[in-house]
Amino acid sequence: MNPIDQLFQRLRTEGRKAFIPFLSAGDPDLPTTTMLAQEVVNAGADLLEIGFPYSDPIADGPVIQASYTRALQKGLTLDAIFDMVRQLADTPAITTRQVPLVGMVSYSLIHRRGPASFLDQAMRAGMSGIIVPDLPVDESEELTRQCAIRDFKCIHLVTPTTPRPRALRIVQRCTGFLYCVSVAGITGERQRIPEELHDQLAWLRSQTTLPLCVGFGISKPDQVRLLRESVDGVIVGSALVRFLEQWGKRPATEIVAEMTQLVRTLGRALHGEP
């Protein structure tokens, strides 16, 4: 069974939600990513998203693009990212808590390597699924097929602007969990949760058994509290990656402490703890 299915099955039995942080690989460098990933997992992550830096990430906001630019300036390669992921997957932090690793990858990188060999390499590195934010369902037939052969999860996005008939097509293609975008627009921190989101989540719930995870713009405990009843998980990206801007300008221990503090705070809000 795919570790993502196992995770959500376990969480459902326990009546808990998934806390899903995002880290970009290689910012400030790969050993630090490995270290941060373990810290974040120890602070309460249930699933980890790993961003593969890309030169022209139109689906990501300025914070993540800046992070990708920093990583690429140091000559980051795909093979080095996969090696890092393999090491991370074997650390006690990941193995004892059985934390699935999911790649967030722009389609250009997958196309260039070829979907089959990209997925093979991702699986060998210990990943369980992939999110391709610039590959809409209309263009995803081949990748979906290649993922299905491997029981590798292909996670799709539904946004507030997605019409319902289209959302149904997405739900049919999607495996693992459904990534529900909270606001129209790109990733980045937002101040409030729109009303329409709750309606959309309720409707999606009536249409699919896939776990529903909400991301894009989540950075505050209040946002998480407003969402927790309607979702199976929350994804936090920019709010964490923002800390990496300060790397090298402040003591690393301070930055790590603040990142893990945010993870704990948001995690408590998600689990309904004070």
Binding site: I58, P133, D134, P136, D138, T161, R166
Partner: peptide, 20 residues
């Protein structure tokens, strides 16, 4: 109809833009 010129073209964009 999919915006393909032979194999080229198409839409490789975030879901947010598909409706637009």
């Amino acid at each position: 109809q999919q915006g393909r010129f032979g194999p080229y073209g198409g839409r490789y964009v975030p879901e947010t833009l598909m409706f637009a």
